[in-house]
């Protein structure tokens, strides 16, 4: 036998690891588990809510890092492990139509109607997102003729890549599920560009960052507020203002309304929302938390300032949010139920 007693004792010693376990002490107060978003803006919104829930309303909030997407929506609808998520963008949420069954309100006005199965309820959180196509500022500086999207065709050679041939390239919506319909928009507006789908937001941003570093022109589908905006100077191409096209749905075989309405226009404003498990927040001990979620209204400027502190100055998110909370009592005290 080649297993000497020495190795066996080593094995026993390592299994010591497994045998000794300590149990965690239960924490005080009603408890909920929230998802930590995987982008800075969402993290800030979540952290602001967590600090108010914990410090002002006496809840215990556990957090789990969870990449956003349909998986998270399903997990929250299930509710047993995780009950609330922060800052979902209606344009990019893939599951909102299926799972929410209530009007989404901002300032008392209904901004979007939903008729899903009601397994998720959602309230706006104050952050308003907007999307457009962007070019880097150095491109506009070098080509003062360039005014808006109508001029794109003139410069399409500068935007071409081996993959797109003679056409220009748009680094489009990264994920098909986001329903941007980039190619359709380009075709309707007569922009001779090809929309390239890179699969993930990260990939699109990495591509843009590399091109920016090399000072190459590029056209990027993009949205604000986002940390990228703080780090790089980008200029919007000012797509036509959003007009809804009711016939443009999958059920209707994507019957478009021509050049007058979506998708030949820019995006609607994104009233971002915090979304939660309805049964969990119907419990009496959660009433205060629910009341808070109904009133929370963080402004874009406040969030952008915090994002800047975290991503540009490399500070810790908890400290940055705490500092904001200490200095802005007048703002958040209005959100308390």
């Amino acid at each position: 036998m080649k297993f000497s007693t020495k190795t066996i004792s080593a094995l026993i010693l390592s299994s010591f690891l497994v045998l000794v376990g300590c149990s965690q002490e239960p924490k005080e107060g009603a408890k909920m588990t929230r998802a930590v978003a995987d982008w800075t803006g969402g993290m800030v919104t979540g952290e602001v809510a967590e600090q108010i829930l914990e410090q002002e309303l006496g809840y215990t909030v556990d957090s789990v890092v969870f990449p956003s997407g349909t998986g998270l929506w399903e997990a929250i609808a299930d509710g047993s492990d995780i009950q609330v998520g922060f800052e979902s963008w209606p344009s990019y949420a893939e599951a909102d139509d299926v799972m929410i069954n209530m009007p989404l309100k901002y300032d008392g006005k209904v901004v979007k109607e939903y008729s899903g199965d009601g397994s998720i309820e959602a309230y706006t959180n104050g952050i308003i997102g907007s999307s457009d196509y962007f070019v880097p500022k150095y491109f506009v500086d070098a080509n003062p003729d360039f005014k808006d999207w109508r001029d794109l065709n003139k410069y399409k050679d500068q935007f071409a890549t081996p993959e797109t041939g003679s056409k220009g390239r748009l680094i489009g919506c990264a994920v098909a599920g986001w329903n941007c319909h980039d190619q359709k928009r380009l075709d309707l507006l007569g922009i001779d560009f090809e929309a390239v789908e890179l699969g993930t937001e990260v990939a699109a941003l990495a591509e843009a960052q590399a091109a920016y570093a090399r000072k190459e022109p590029f056209l990027l589908y993009f949205w604000t507020p986002h940390w990228f905006q703080g780090a790089y100077e980008m200029v919007g191409v000012k797509l036509p203002a959003n007009v809804d096209c009711p016939s443009y749905t999958e059920a209707n075989n994507w019957k478009d309304c021509g050049t007058d309405a979506w998708p030949a226009t820019g995006w609607a404003k994104d009233y971002t929302m915090n979304y939660m498990n309805p049964d969990f927040f119907a419990k009496p001990e959660m009433a205060k938390a629910k009341g808070f979620f109904q009133k929370m209204k963080l402004s874009n400027d406040d969030q952008a300032a915090m994002i800047n502190e975290i991503d540009k100055n490399g500070r810790d998110i908890v400290a940055v949010v705490q500092e904001w909370k200490d200095n802005n009592k007048d703002k958040w005290s209005k959100w308390l139920p």
Binding site: G69, T70, G71, W73, E74, E94, A95, V98, V175, A176, G177, V196, E197, L198, G199, T200, V202, A203, A206
Partner: peptide, 20 residues
């Protein structure tokens, strides 16, 4: 590879997952 722009069946998997 669809995470950085690959195509084919892998992308189909992501498209399926994204729509639940």
């Amino acid at each position: 590879t669809p995470l950085i722009g690959g195509k084919g069946l892998g992308k189909e998997v992501f498209a399926g997952l994204a729509r639940s």
